[in-house]
Write a protein that binds this DNA or RNA. Structure first.
Lengths: 211, 211, 211, 211
DNA sequence: GATGAATGAGCCTTCATTCAT
DNA sequence: AATGAATGAAGGCTCATTCAT
């Protein structure tokens, strides 16, 4: 019986998580307005009303998806072990990590993008939105300070500036891949193009943080 | 009568342009899916059916808005006079121009963003999408080559890479302003924050292109 | 062409009025909550969305139906010619008129009933709800005053009291016909029962207003 | 254990009665169609499914609520002691009782009203709906007969007519309080207005039954 | 060229009810 | 006895688009 209860709980958690997963995919693909609750239900192989049962409405579902996305990124960041590198190299590792996180989780940047189109109305409803990105800020802040001590990172750089710069270079390339590929008549999604862009990003950041 | 015809033509051109303007605002604000044809008609103080009369449907209207947006940017770029600067400084002028163009035309980046969410399906329908960005590519290509000759720009940088880097730093900051402001608990829209970001962008690009 | 325009206007007015008629029937039959917009469209043989095109939403449609119901009653009251009767008899004529109006327009009392269940939220939104019943109040007030002069109506009766008494006796009987018929195991809808009730009402009012 | 069973039975009875109470409030407030099973469960602080467990469905729940409402009224009527009054005065006592019962149990008339909107479909399903109102009929019938003997009540009045007249005057005023208050621009709910209406009702009935 | 009228498809959401323990 | 999970049916409303003049 204990077993069964556990199983039930898992079933519920599983179904909720299936819905969240489906919603993440749908929202990332179509944006908030373009996403269809019906489509999410179909993707999750769940009854549509179950979505409302668990998540109340489309907006709250989106909020949950956003939170989960941030949570997942935070967890992966926590697994980073950057102490073994000198600070300046560790920062380049961050560039690397960010880029590959974006590549492996293309939904993350699209969700963020969609949320920004809605003027962050979902994030605004959260209790402590700052926590979403706390680890990220802590990591860069720590690296910068270490870099100053190690004298391998320029001193007048703020954590937010570094974060934004790192994110911007990868984010822009990926989020605008469709139009850029057309305008530059190159497939920016090809592996060689991706590799080359990573190289450029690191080159750029390295040059910038050099003391 | 000739007079009247001219007047009529102007009226027609005027009404079309009012619709385009209204559409640009609506699409930029709400995205393609969030935009409402009714709302565009209202903003333009035009009959809704007139929109269909002139622009066939929502998609073609969006395409026209996009084209106009690119055209406008091209025109402003054409007015740039960068020959009087050394190449490396001219590139920083480009950073400056790009940033201020984004600031003065916030709709430009939002339209691009929306188009990317739709996987550039509107651009794909164009006859010569490359032309949209031709001048921009020509300018940076020219500057890079001049920089190599003047020996004040590093030689292994491609025009596309430079373009993307310059655009990325400004674009990311502005397009994600809502969520970033929440997460970093600072108003990124304040003048001082904007100025500071411009400084960082220039610093970053300058460091990167230095030979 | 003038003809055609007139015809068109009539067509539109006709369709709107068909919708209003259908709505009145549906609302009266099922109450506001029980009424279905789909059903109204069907009754009116109109496209459902046309209802929204003309009347915005279910609530505003109900408001319009209510207004029309009051308007119609007002018009019929205006056609009453009570001057030829002594005041006390004229008041009994009012009982008669009210009763027959209720009988011929069973929807009127049901609409009012439904509106009261909703705490008059539709009437509250009107600009001058008092006007709805103005003529009715004027008529009774006039009759009472004349009755005092003619000395055939008791003097300490207010217009509102008379109105309410007259309405109450007929309204209660008709609105509760279903349950009353069951409880008293008689068909209160039979002609003889209706006639008898009219007699009782007149008897009651006559006794009450006697000086 | 016996104790526990008793306790449990009470608990069950209590929970059923809490549900009935909640349902009565909800049905009275919103009408049958406007009422929500969820809302009833919430008001009763009971699991929604429990409602179905005890009462099968919304209709049967409503039926039970109606029955309870009638039962309660019957019980209060049984407590009336009208023998000490002359018949004509006793009838005025009935007017008084009815009015105060309506005032203290506003749900009663609203439930009846809702049931009539549904064409008494719940009452129709009862085994002996006549019993619901038996005592009321018996009382008035008795009073009328006594009044004839005492020669203080007119002879050609039927019990049903008296009942309806008494109920109508109070019922109409209260059930239509919202719209009447708006149309007559007076708060009919004020104590003075209520008192005045009771006076009018008694005046009217007294005049009517006078031999 | 211009416009009010009209519509089909679909969207988010609600609600009474049932399932499964 | 009691409850959380789940669902089919529908309901009000929206929206891009077309009709008809």
């Amino acid at each position: 019986m204990a077993n069964r209860m556990v199983k039930d709980k898992n079933d519920v958690a599983d179904k909720q998580s299936r819905i969240l997963q489906a919603a993440r995919a749908e929202f990332a693909e179509k944006g908030f307005d373009g996403a269809r609750v019906d489509s999410i239900a179909e993707r999750a192989q769940a009854n549509k009303q179950l979505i409302y049962y668990y998540f109340v409405n489309k907006d709250q579902l989106f909020t949950r998806v956003l939170e989960e996305a941030y949570r997942d990124k935070r967890q992966q960041e926590a697994a980073l072990d950057l102490d073994r590198f000198p600070a300046n190299e560790a920062i380049l590792q961050l560039v690397d990590f960010t880029w590959h996180y974006y590549l492996k989780n293309p939904e993350f940047i699209r969700l963020l993008n969609s949320e920004n189109q809605l003027k962050a109305r979902h994030l605004q409803g959260l209790d402590s939105p700052v926590e979403l990105n706390r680890s990220w800020i802590d990591i860069t802040q720590g690296l910068l300070e270490r870099g100053w001590r190690e004298n391998n990172v320029r001193s007048n750089i703020a954590a937010m500036q570094l974060n934004i710069t790192i994110s911007a270079l990868g984010f822009f390339y990926l989020i605008n891949q469709s139009t850029l590929s057309i305008i530059y008549q190159t497939d920016l999604g090809e592996q060689s193009a991706l590799d080359e862009h990573l190289r450029v990003m690191k080159e750029c950041v390295a040059a910038w943080i050099r003391p």
